[in-house]
């Protein structure tokens, strides 16, 4: 998990604020979307002699029901695969995950054990299927926490920032958010493991809390953008109240960005959980988890490399799936993608 940049701290005139998401491909979507330098805030020198240029083709994006792209399709297939694995494990697995078979220890792939067996003779395929459950549960809970707390925080901070009397509230919220960023998910999870007992629960909550700033940022910048738009001015001139504007104008317009962020945060959660379990600070034995399988495989690296292969492969596939899905969704939703092209 360590390899995921999360957005770093800083203030109003900081180019970082423009980096859309804290996830891996945040700025790295297929065609590239963010260029903080070009929109660097605080740069608006008084431009007295320039009025808005004639725009010819803004927002001419075709919003077909499903505009598919390769990233999205591959990502969706992988994500569905992982979900299917987890769901099927509730109904059926080849073996009982705790069924120990000393005779069939450390086997490689065979018809009976397609993915082989571990040092206790337990079926690796069964464990991979059970592991998918934990992986997805951690992802859902962590992203749920981050989304449900982070998004309102961001929206509220942006709403307050409009008023002279509320600007400081918005600023304080975002500064607190920035300080939270100094605690990467792994660090927070280790702290939780130290204070409470190591386990799936604290790990999920820690990863979720660490992901809050990402959502808050995306929601805030999206809300600021919407609030600054002429259609919100029009709504105000039409006597809509702030809650109505937030509900009917802001939320639908930032939903896309938040969904993208959720997809990316899901990938980060998967990596975080695997890393924690690898350290022995996440999911505890005997619950099957990909990270711990990988950790246990370490002592057999020279003799049975296959043991590391399967959990490693599925961690990578799950992360790849959510990242690709996020990329594909970003191409559809990112407002900057549509403004291009002029005569």
């Amino acid at each position: 998990m360590s390899q995921n940049p999360s957005p770093a701290s800083s203030g109003e005139t900081n180019p970082r604020n423009v980096v859309t998401a804290d996830g891996i491909p945040a700025a790295a979507s297929a065609e590239g979307t963010t260029a903080p330098g070009t929109t660097a805030p605080g740069t608006a020198a008084p431009e007295a002699a320039v009025r808005p240029s004639r725009r010819t083709g803004v927002d001419q994006r075709k919003r077909t029901l499903l505009r598919l792209n390769a990233s999205m399709v591959i990502g969706a297939v992988l994500v569905i695969l992982i979900f299917a694995l987890a769901l099927v494990s509730f109904l059926w697995t080849p073996y009982d995950p705790s069924a120990v078979d000393p005779v069939a220890r450390l086997q490689s792939s065979s018809l009976e054990h397609p993915f082989g067996t571990d040092m206790f003779g337990r079926d690796t395929l069964t464990w991979v299927m059970y592991g998918a459950r934990i992986t997805l549960m951690v992802g859902i809970v962590a992203v749920g926490i981050a989304l449900l707390i982070g998004t309102p925080i961001g929206v509220i901070a942006a709403l307050f920032a409009q008023y002279p009397w509320g600007a400081w509230i918005g600023a304080v919220i975002m500064r607190a958010n920035d300080i939270l960023l100094a605690f990467p998910a792994l660090l927070l999870a280790i702290i939780f493991a130290a204070v409470y007992q190591p386990g799936t629960g604290p790990a999920m909550v820690a990863v979720g809390i660490a992901a809050i700033p990402g959502f808050a940022r995306v929601a805030r910048s999206g809300t600021m953008q919407v609030l600054g738009s002429e259609y919100v001015r029009a709504a105000r001139a039409s006597n809509r109240r702030v809650p109505a504007i937030a509900l009917f104008h802001v939320l639908p317009n930032i939903a896309g960005m938040v969904i993208v962020q959720a997809s990316v945060a899901f990938a980060i959660s998967i990596l975080a959980e695997a890393g924690l379990s690898f350290l022995g600070l996440g999911t505890q034995a005997p619950v099957p988890s990909w990270g711990r399988m990988l950790q246990e495989s370490q002592q057999f690296l020279s003799t049975h490399p296959g043991l590391a292969l399967w959990p490693g492969l599925f961690i990578a596939l799950a992360v790849l799936g959510f990242n690709l899905l996020g990329d594909g969704l970003r191409d559809r939703f990112d407002p900057k993608m549509e403004a291009r092209g002029n005569g």
Binding site: M1, Q3, N4, P5, R16, V19, A35, L186, G275, Q298
Partner: peptide, 28 residues
């Protein structure tokens, strides 16, 4: 040089996460 601004941002974030993320590699 213009592209450097977002790249510096990301590299800084990466450095920060590496600091903690090295935990696992140090263990291995």
């Amino acid at each position: 040089r213009n592209a450097a601004i977002p790249v510096v941002t990301v590299a800084g974030v990466q450095l920060a996460t590496l600091l903690v993320g090295a935990v696992i590699i140090e263990q291995i």
